[in-house]
Amino acid sequence: MRESMDMFIADGDGDKITPVLTADESKWRELVRLHAPYLFRLIGRFFQDRQMVEDLAQETFFRAFRYRKSYRSKVPIKYWLARIAVRLCYDALRKKKNLKELSVSDISPDAVNELETRLSCGNQGENTDPETGLITRDFLEKLLAHLSEKDRMILILTAVEGLTSKETSGLMGLTTAGVKMRIYRARRSALQKLRNVAGGTG
């Protein structure tokens, strides 16, 4: 288990942090400073809205502080916090879907053409305009919107965040085999959507 969590062992994390989980708030402030950037990046993979990212990161720390006695020192704190954050993101994504159903038909043809060009030639770093970047990101995320929240999260955690199936299964509370199966199905489904939208076989 520990071997699969190597990427969660942060600098400064380890034995000296463990007493934080039963001790005072000043040490928790250190913990927040240490892990907040990672949690922001992780939550930012699922949400564009900055306020949403901040709220979820804040709630992650509050929840961790409240339930600090349930922490097992066998796992790195970063992993434990990531797990709480992923659960919160999952709940938030489910709520968000109820409010707004995303549709690929909203996407402009220009964005489709641009994506097609960038996927074909593999030149992905040329776009530097932040506004265009936001539109492209929105478009890419809409392409994954047809997937279930769980499948979308698994795909992003593995393909974008670079976690292994084992790490993802731990964060999502699923079995490794279940995660692998979901990755396979979700990839196939995403590819089908990509074909339909970007048109053709590339």
Binding site: R41, I43, G44, R118, G125, L134, R137, E141, A159, V160
Partner: peptide
Amino acid sequence: RFFQLLKIEQDKIKP
């Protein structure tokens, strides 16, 4: 490539 592109775009506006 699609996921690489998504990662690049997400990293550009990293909160």
